[in-house]
Deep mutational scan, measured.
Amino acid sequence: MASQGTKRSYEQMETDGERQNATEIRASVGKMIDGIGRFYIQMCTELKLSDYEGRLIQNSLTIERMVLSAFDERRNKYLEEHPSAGKDPKKTGGPIYKRVDRKWMRELVLYDKEEIRRIWRQANNGDDATAGLTHMMIWHSNLNDTTYQRTRALVRTGMDPRMCSLMQGSTLPRRSGAAGAAVKGVGTMVMELIRMIKRGINDRNFWRGENGRKTRSAYERMCNILKGKFQTAAQRAMMDQVRESRNPGNAEIEDLIFLARSALILRGSVAHKSCLPACVYGPAVASGYDFEKEGYSLVGIDPFKLLQNSQVYSLIRPNENPAHKSQLVWMACNSAAFEDLRVLSFIRGTKVSPRGKLSTRGVQIASNENMDAMESSTLELRSRYWAIRTRSGGNTNQQRASAGQISVQPAFSVQRNLPFDKPTIMAAFTGNTEGRTSDMRAEIIRMMEGAKPEEMSFQGRGVFELSDERAANPIVPSFDMSNEGSYFFGDNAEEYDN
């Protein structure tokens, strides 16, 4: 993207840094990872977990959730003011799984939030270390993106479920800051804005008074975040219109849905970061690795190297396929839920299948599930090659597409044709070009129609051997075009429920 120079890199967003050079960025990201790792080690000690239990991804998720809940100030305040039966607002906890007599047992633990905050700050040299908290939120978000298709949420806001490739980060909490905003897809931002506008339509006082002023500035800020994701002048001009509207209503909703559809071809720039579970960072720190000293990046080879040398386990339900569970977590670790499966298959070195073909449910185990038949197995999170994460949407291309997802959002900077089903997408653009945004709409449609099938995206960008740390010898991959490109292809993934 041309304006790259004016933006802070995501590592800076990730670490609240002012302008830093590459070495400083690597050190501050490393410091953040160190903090998460030290916190995780301490929690495993508190909970008396064995090494194996500490490497269980379900335990990692519970521990991450506990610290996120302990620092969720708004919710904590709300819980104190609106006490609900049987919930102690000062405590947080969740299921911890232990191996007892050759069987997995679930144990519900409860801790004072104050105590968890103390352990977290102690692991982070006394700081609140917001960057580390956001990092864990993005890992949870990436896992949700890989596990669930947001059909219901899309339909509720009037969008087409086939636009799911635009929904990265749709389950990120509001408090995820600049680093969170960077990884949100165009569809996620559109959905947040539509929800806001709908509230304004239904509630006369939404934009009024002292609160209304705050609401208005939040609305304009979200519009600017979305505008910054678009790469064409016409899309940005249309966002200006939406932002400046005196009284946002149905016309703005129409414009936003139009823009979301246009992003299936004229893709937005959305950041991709490899955020790993805390149970990967903990053992690495415990083994003596100093992330701050060595430096770390979320968008280069580092996460690949770390996963190459990590042992992570997962509980497996009786009829689940461990290899499929591994694929789910591998995609989440690489922030690749909406990437082209052919690119992923090449990088991973084994075939990556669409969601609907995987015999696996989510990673988390519900409290009512029976533990008797639970097994555990090693997650295979290694890769054959590594590639640089991208934040450009890439230019655009036609490809055989599917009944489910009709476009992709690249996660890796790797040369390819970008699949999208042009006739299906263009069919949504018939007729409606009147109104105050008509010239911009016409211009956007013209650009979409001009998108050429034979153009290559990320020209000359390749993948790298894991021994090639400096990215000196790019390998331009070859793809098996007979395979499906979309992950949520004609899909039956479970729906995400809060």
Rank of each mutant, 00 (worst) to 15 (best):
369 E>T: 12
318 P>T: 05
89 P>Y: 08
342 R>A: 07
478 S>M: 01
459 Q>D: 03
304 F>Q: 05
428 A>S: 12
37 G>D: 11
52 Y>C: 03
437 T>E: 01
103 K>A: 14
12 Q>P: 00
305 K>S: 09
284 A>F: 14
166 L>T: 06
336 A>G: 15
159 M>I: 13
143 L>Q: 03
16 D>P: 01
473 N>M: 14
20 Q>N: 02
8 R>C: 07
195 R>T: 11
156 R>K: 09
366 A>N: 05
42 Q>W: 07
276 L>T: 04
277 P>E: 03
171 T>P: 02
433 T>H: 08
478 S>E: 00
54 G>Y: 07
315 L>A: 08
255 D>F: 04
404 G>R: 04
471 A>V: 00
293 K>N: 10
110 L>C: 08
190 V>S: 11
426 M>W: 00
39 F>R: 07
387 A>K: 09
328 L>N: 13
390 T>D: 02
8 R>S: 00
199 R>D: 02
287 S>F: 06
12 Q>A: 07
134 T>N: 10
21 N>T: 12
95 P>R: 07
143 L>I: 15
7 K>L: 00
187 G>P: 12
219 Y>E: 10
154 L>P: 01
224 N>R: 06
469 E>P: 13
272 H>E: 09
366 A>Q: 05
288 G>M: 11
157 T>D: 08
355 R>Y: 09
323 A>W: 00
78 Y>N: 05
484 E>V: 15
257 I>T: 08
477 P>N: 02
461 R>F: 00
324 H>N: 11
412 F>G: 01
207 W>H: 02
88 D>N: 15
418 L>A: 01
340 D>I: 02
267 R>A: 05
239 M>T: 07
52 Y>A: 15
443 E>I: 04
437 T>G: 01
278 A>L: 12
323 A>Q: 13
208 R>N: 09
331 M>H: 05
26 R>N: 00
2 A>K: 01
294 E>L: 01
346 F>Y: 03
14 E>I: 07
340 D>A: 05
325 K>S: 00
25 I>L: 06
391 R>M: 04
286 A>V: 06
306 L>A: 13
418 L>H: 02
82 H>F: 15
208 R>F: 02
441 R>A: 08
282 G>R: 06
423 P>H: 13
469 E>T: 06
373 A>F: 14
48 K>R: 04
408 V>I: 07
108 L>W: 05
385 Y>K: 02
81 E>K: 08
65 R>A: 07
205 N>T: 14
220 E>A: 09
371 M>R: 00
266 L>G: 01
5 G>V: 00
472 A>N: 11
335 S>Q: 12
218 A>S: 15
281 Y>K: 06
180 G>C: 03
494 E>G: 06
375 E>N: 14
304 F>D: 02
55 R>V: 10
229 K>H: 12
180 G>M: 09
365 I>T: 06
17 G>P: 15
331 M>R: 02
288 G>A: 13
240 D>V: 09
55 R>Q: 12
490 G>D: 03
23 T>I: 04
230 F>C: 13
79 L>N: 09
456 M>N: 12
491 D>P: 01
85 A>C: 12
50 S>E: 13
177 G>C: 07
105 M>W: 07
169 G>V: 10
492 N>R: 13
420 F>H: 14
150 R>E: 12
197 I>G: 02
11 E>D: 13
348 R>V: 06
168 Q>G: 04
398 Q>I: 08
489 F>V: 00
294 E>Q: 15
169 G>N: 10
213 R>L: 06
277 P>A: 11
73 E>W: 11
299 V>W: 13
449 E>P: 13
31 K>R: 15
3 S>R: 03
190 V>R: 03
348 R>D: 07
387 A>N: 03
61 L>R: 02
102 R>M: 10
469 E>R: 06
30 G>N: 11
264 L>Y: 07
343 V>H: 00
489 F>H: 14
319 N>E: 01
427 A>W: 02
453 P>R: 15
258 F>I: 01
116 I>W: 06
419 P>F: 01
440 M>F: 05
62 T>Q: 03
212 G>Q: 07
468 D>V: 03
323 A>P: 10
144 N>K: 08
74 R>T: 03
216 R>M: 09
480 D>R: 13
368 N>Y: 02
485 G>P: 00
88 D>R: 00
225 I>Q: 11
397 N>G: 01
89 P>C: 15
177 G>F: 12
374 M>L: 14
44 C>A: 13
410 P>V: 04
402 S>P: 03
200 G>V: 07
34 D>W: 03
189 M>D: 01
137 M>Y: 10
135 H>V: 03
431 G>W: 04
64 E>S: 09
331 M>D: 02
333 C>F: 04
351 K>L: 10
433 T>S: 09
49 L>N: 09
26 R>V: 05
449 E>D: 14
249 G>W: 11
401 A>F: 00
301 I>W: 13
331 M>E: 06
90 K>E: 01
251 A>G: 05
202 N>P: 03
441 R>T: 04
351 K>T: 02
106 R>Q: 07
354 P>A: 15
440 M>C: 11
219 Y>T: 14
236 R>G: 07
336 A>T: 10
228 G>A: 10
441 R>Y: 04
305 K>C: 11
98 K>Q: 14
238 M>R: 02
334 N>D: 06
18 E>M: 00
329 V>R: 06
331 M>P: 08
390 T>S: 14
94 G>T: 10
415 Q>I: 00
449 E>A: 07
252 E>F: 06
192 E>I: 10
450 G>R: 03
179 A>G: 11
44 C>L: 13
1 M>L: 08
122 Q>V: 15
68 L>C: 11
145 D>V: 02
54 G>H: 14
86 G>E: 02
382 R>N: 07
326 S>F: 10
400 R>L: 02
32 M>I: 05
23 T>Q: 14
57 I>W: 01
484 E>H: 00
165 S>Q: 03
41 I>Y: 09
178 A>V: 12
468 D>G: 00
92 T>K: 04
207 W>A: 02
263 A>S: 13
335 S>N: 06
387 A>G: 15
47 L>F: 01
364 Q>I: 10
347 I>T: 09
129 A>P: 04
42 Q>P: 12
473 N>R: 15
78 Y>C: 07
64 E>P: 12
403 A>C: 13
113 K>M: 07
469 E>Y: 06
26 R>I: 04
113 K>R: 10
362 G>N: 09
494 E>K: 14
17 G>K: 11
271 A>L: 08
370 N>D: 11
423 P>I: 05
27 A>S: 11
476 V>P: 12
86 G>Y: 03
300 G>V: 05
458 F>T: 02
368 N>E: 14
472 A>D: 06
377 S>C: 09
135 H>M: 14
61 L>D: 15
403 A>T: 15
55 R>E: 05
66 M>K: 11
107 E>I: 03
370 N>I: 05
16 D>R: 13
194 I>Y: 03
393 G>P: 04
254 E>G: 10
208 R>Y: 06
107 E>C: 05
179 A>E: 12
404 G>C: 11
301 I>E: 07
492 N>W: 03
438 S>H: 15
28 S>L: 04
256 L>S: 12
182 A>T: 10
69 S>A: 12
62 T>A: 11
376 S>F: 09
476 V>G: 12
170 S>L: 07
225 I>R: 05
96 I>S: 10
189 M>C: 14
444 I>Q: 14
455 E>F: 07
232 T>S: 11
300 G>E: 08
96 I>P: 06
235 Q>A: 10
339 E>R: 00
254 E>C: 10
148 Y>N: 10
209 G>R: 06
472 A>Q: 09
274 S>H: 00
346 F>W: 11
284 A>H: 13
395 N>H: 15
90 K>A: 07
266 L>R: 12
182 A>S: 11
379 L>Y: 11
147 T>L: 04
337 A>D: 05
94 G>W: 06
164 C>T: 04
488 F>G: 06
253 I>P: 00
269 S>C: 12
335 S>L: 10
46 E>W: 08
352 V>S: 10
416 R>D: 01
55 R>W: 05
488 F>C: 14
342 R>W: 06
456 M>L: 12
203 D>N: 08
74 R>W: 10
73 E>G: 06
370 N>T: 12
59 N>L: 04
252 E>T: 00
428 A>N: 11
376 S>C: 11
